[in-house]
Amino acid sequence: MHLSTRFRRGQRLWLLLLPTLLWIGLLFVLPHIKLFLLSFMDRRSGAFTLANYAAFFNSSLYRNVFVRTTTFSIVTTLLTLFISFPAAFIITKVLGRKMKALALIAIVLPYWVSELIQAFTWMILFRETGVLSYLLQYLGITHHNIEFLYHNSTIVVGLVYTSLLFMTIPIINSLDTLDDSLIEAAYDLGGDFWSTMREIIIPHAAPGIMVGSIMVFMLNLGNYVTVTLLGGKNSLWFTESIYNQFIVRFNQNQGAAFGVILLTFSVLFVWIVLKITKQDLTEAM
């Protein structure tokens, strides 16, 4: 009896474990091992080589694209944070119950619209014959079409737009748990708006800020749709380099090396940021 239940329990474990292992093994682990191996192989002979990585580090173009991608990702992450934090603060601590629900719905709604449509709406607004150009002519500010697409700033606007929710929601969640009497206590003890912000509200929201920033940074770094549509041929985003190697040049090995570089870098970067800010992500999640 005892033996058989133990046997059955073991059987059940394996029955549950099998689909999970198949899924995560075949669709995640093995493909990434394959990617890793490919990155060290010569394109023709398949022999071990570091040439794919050397190609990245020796080419100023690839290096620049990478640095550009990273810089833009950091800038847009910070920009998103600066826009989202006041919004999250106002929604949680200033607005009344009804207004809060309304504002939340309005912020969540665009999130359910696919990123492709989001980028498309900005194209409609920003292209040469677009809405913004029309509006400026209608108001008499200019008399000819202006192309707002395919600028760096267009990319930033698009990225901030798709990222806004991923930053706002974690911050709202963390601010929601801040007892209002803590803010009152800070005022009561002589604090003003800024000192209360600095010493009470921001430290309390730090885990939410961290989660939001990491998510947004990773999303930006790995973005493809928004940057290629709004940046056009000049987007020079690192994911586009990966795509080009795989699909346009049929150079799997070079593309794999780029993929490994992107992955390694993003994980390292997040880890370093967590170390510097002394945040524990498990605590934050």
Binding site: L27, L30, L35, I242, F246, S266
Partner: peptide
Amino acid sequence: MLGPLVVPGVVLGTSILAF
């Protein structure tokens, strides 16, 4: 298991394609 959420979609797509 959380990995697929973190890895950029482009990398996920290419690695599955290659595999």
